[in-house]
Simulated scan of single mutants.
Amino acid sequence: MFFDSLPGLLRVAVISLLAYAAMVLVLRIAGKRALAKLNAFDLVVTVALGSTLATVLLSKDVALAEGMLAFAALALLQWLLSRLSIASARFRKLVRAEPRLLLEDGVYCRSAMAKERVTADEVDAAIRSAGFGCIEAVAAVVLETDGSMSVVARAQNEELTALRSVQR
């Protein structure tokens, strides 16, 4: 069967349009940070927003106003969390991961890799993805707070200031 009823299809079409417009409005008010994947909490909010949208669109048990309230609540909580993180170093350490050095000057940081559950093969893959064929051309590989790996090229006689906040 392709659909249950014409009114059901019409409901999904109308609710989709309204929910999408409301979600865009909430995200514009919340700012760019609302969909950033800077840390685990940002990812959770992004997934929760998608799940909420799907529920509003497809469940007859959830009214549009309830879904929009959920969108607004998630955006507000995300905003509050980021504000508290900026205001308090102690709170920031509680809710945010720190970037971690996985490779430095051609040497794997095995203890950091073990703590982060990352293998040498995964570090090598990140190096290859960055366009490097040999580890000697790489100054560092950093596991970022969003789970991605950054590869820093070796530079001649330059201090690697971008690594100052990386946990060693």
Rank of each mutant, 00 (worst) to 15 (best):
G106E: 14
R96Y: 12
T119N: 06
E116L: 00
R90A: 06
L103G: 03
V123I: 02
V123A: 00
S111H: 08
S111Q: 13
A89E: 11
L101K: 05
A89G: 07
T119G: 02
L94Q: 06
R96F: 07
L101S: 03
E116T: 00
A114R: 15
D105H: 08
L101Y: 06
E116Q: 01
A97H: 06
L94G: 05
E98L: 12
F91K: 04
R100Y: 04
R92S: 13
K115P: 10
L103P: 04
R110Y: 12
E104R: 07
V95I: 07
R100D: 05
E122M: 00
C109G: 09
Y108R: 04
R110S: 05
P99E: 00
A112F: 09
A97E: 04
M113Y: 01
E122K: 00
L101C: 10
Y108D: 05
R100V: 01
A112P: 11
F91Y: 10
L103F: 09
E122Q: 11
G106P: 15
E116S: 02
R117A: 08
E98Q: 07
R96T: 05
A112R: 13
T119E: 11
R90Q: 06
D121E: 08
M113P: 11
C109Q: 15
G106T: 10
V107M: 09
V123E: 01
K115T: 06
S88N: 09
V118A: 07
R90P: 00
A97Y: 01
Y108I: 05
V95W: 02
Y108E: 14
V95C: 04
E98F: 01
K115S: 09
E104P: 12
E122P: 06
